[in-house]
Design a protein around this nucleic acid. Sequence first.
DNA 1: CATGAATGAGAATTCATTCAT
DNA 2: TATGAATGAATTCTCATTCAT
Lengths: 219, 219, 219, 219
Amino acid sequence: MMRTGPPPHAAADRAEGRTARKRRAILAAGTTLFLSHGYRGTSMDEIAAAARVSKQTVYKQFADKERLFAEIVTSTVDEVARPVHDEVLKLRSSGDLEADLRRLARKLLRMVMQPRILQLRRLIIGEAARFPQLGRTFYEEGPGRTIAALATVFERLADDGVLRPGDPRVAAAHFNWLVMSVPLNRAMLLGDDTPPATAELNRHADAGVRAFLAAYARP
Amino acid sequence: MMRTGPPPHAAADRAEGRTARKRRAILAAGTTLFLSHGYRGTSMDEIAAAARVSKQTVYKQFADKERLFAEIVTSTVDEVARPVHDEVLKLRSSGDLEADLRRLARKLLRMVMQPRILQLRRLIIGEAARFPQLGRTFYEEGPGRTIAALATVFERLADDGVLRPGDPRVAAAHFNWLVMSVPLNRAMLLGDDTPPATAELNRHADAGVRAFLAAYARP
Amino acid sequence: MMRTGPPPHAAADRAEGRTARKRRAILAAGTTLFLSHGYRGTSMDEIAAAARVSKQTVYKQFADKERLFAEIVTSTVDEVARPVHDEVLKLRSSGDLEADLRRLARKLLRMVMQPRILQLRRLIIGEAARFPQLGRTFYEEGPGRTIAALATVFERLADDGVLRPGDPRVAAAHFNWLVMSVPLNRAMLLGDDTPPATAELNRHADAGVRAFLAAYARP
Amino acid sequence: MMRTGPPPHAAADRAEGRTARKRRAILAAGTTLFLSHGYRGTSMDEIAAAARVSKQTVYKQFADKERLFAEIVTSTVDEVARPVHDEVLKLRSSGDLEADLRRLARKLLRMVMQPRILQLRRLIIGEAARFPQLGRTFYEEGPGRTIAALATVFERLADDGVLRPGDPRVAAAHFNWLVMSVPLNRAMLLGDDTPPATAELNRHADAGVRAFLAAYARP
DNA sequence: CATGAATGAGAATTCATTCAT
DNA sequence: TATGAATGAATTCTCATTCAT
């Protein structure tokens, strides 16, 4: 938001900004509505009204509902996947592996259990038949990327003799799902997006890490 | 409703049977359609047509679409959950724990990855916001029940010194998701319901069992 | 309209008749509207309203607008083409060829210049790009059939030495268009469907016949 | 419109030229679109987009869609009618009347069967109810003018004893339609604008001329 | 009781035309 | 003057549900 350099002409800025601003408003309104009422449960009328924009403007910016949906989902995936992945990349061995993994697991779990991500996951799963590409994108940018990054780390730890030898991708996947599966599946199915108490999430994370280390750490 | 004269048993039976048959036809048609096109993607017209029944008949049997949907999902959950649970109950220690768990894991995974169950899970997740009760039912009759049954078994195994002591419900949940999470999450998101080759599923099951035993078996 | 034979059950008749009656009302309303405002100039709403029928009923009977249009045009073509063709078939040599042809020409021209047929032809030509099949049908059932029937007659007349030898289909086409082209093209383009006075039409018909005989009759 | 200061000729010229160029672009785009999709099948948006011009510019130049359409059709009629009429005017008796008429007939028929003219005729006929004036213009500048010019020629030929005496306008109309009707009506109805092979057109033209001469030439 | 029709609303999308910048 | 947004209605088609026969 901080501008360095010469300020552009005010008029041009306002002119160019208006379209962009409307576009962003449409995306924001659509995101909220799609996430909470699903693809078919959201009408283009509602989106236009929520964005305080005419229906024509919506259709001028996005060819049709499918494409608006795809764009919204894709960009939301990007938006929510990035911080998760960043967290994985921050993993550094400090000597105390359990503490490190526990910190990571807690962080990841808390992120993944955010209402927005739960809704997004539910939305994508519910529309996977109609929009398989979106599911693929979510998988690759989400769990796929996390597991791949963890695998790289675990491979080094195995080389260093900290973890047992074996396919690091299997270990990574097991780590990921040991930490997340219990609360995540529960949330997916129960439709309750208010995140559980941090303490509870931590318990799940810690239990997962404990099982993971018992299975994969060098004795 | 009042019958005068001798009720011809055969006729009454046939009459009642016809109603029941139509009811079943509606449920069957609705199941197929809801599973493949979702709640909003399926119209009452389509269901009536597919069941070769008039719309009035549908509305005579089921108050409205929501109730028809709920009944269909509930009974489908029952139908698919029972064999899974039966499988868990068959678990008996034969002395070779790894072989026993492996057999169970393979069996469970193959069941859970059936197209019908994948579709059902997706349907329920996608509609969890509108029909939270259905998600709860699915959870309780599905993973919840499996994990609870496993927990009972694992508790005994811990008492017998075969498994390490600890909360058996955590162990059961970890077992369940170690076996299923990788292929299940992939299938949920990729929207591909053609089940993976048995060999591949077996690999996932076996890897899950191996990790589970490494983590939870008494050394 | 006269009924011979046993009158059907009143109830069944009324019941079966209702759907058929509505269907006919839709076709009638659609015919009028399409003929006078064209395909795009007529809305399904208008048709339903004019037929005093709900939109649903229209869509239950006809899958979509295109198919309703095709059905209407096809059946109107049948309806208007039959009497024209019947007229051609009535042609009999009475010894006075000129009188026979003149009578036929006048009859045909008067029929072809009926407002309904002019409108139909205009409608089909205007939509020929979108509905080429309809144009083909009109051509085959209309001019095509007339010319083919005339060709058969002319062939016999040539064999009898009344007409000059030569391709009878060319002679038939020339007869047809010599009689019709002048008033027909004028009407097509001027958009005026009030038929010219009979006297004027007769002049066109007679002039066409005269030219035809001068060209094709044995001297 | 009032210019103050020294008018930079170049700039003014460029400015005026730009407007004119845009106007021509709009006309060109509209012509293509109207000819191929009809009046109602073409939107002002499409025209503006195809002309690479803003919608405002279109409305600045043409009051509304009807007027734009009328202008386009009128000018297209002018454009396509002129060469046809020029051809008629070139008719000179070379002593061999049949050869002269045959050459003219072939030329005329080939012109009239150009895709652009077929489309234009279809467009005008299809919209004759809404835009009768356009049909009148087309008729007068097209067949009307051709026939009138031919009539002048035929009158002289009759005076010279080459053609039989009689109303030269009737002879001219018969000539015109004997040559054109068969392929033209076929094309109008079948909606196929790819012109028939020249050889086929020539056959139609020659057959028309032959019949015309048999009917109208002095023996 | 079951069929077809009706209802009344709402979906996505498009249109011609006009403001506002 | 020209651009994008807005308007406001219309179009095709579908839906869940309810009468009427």
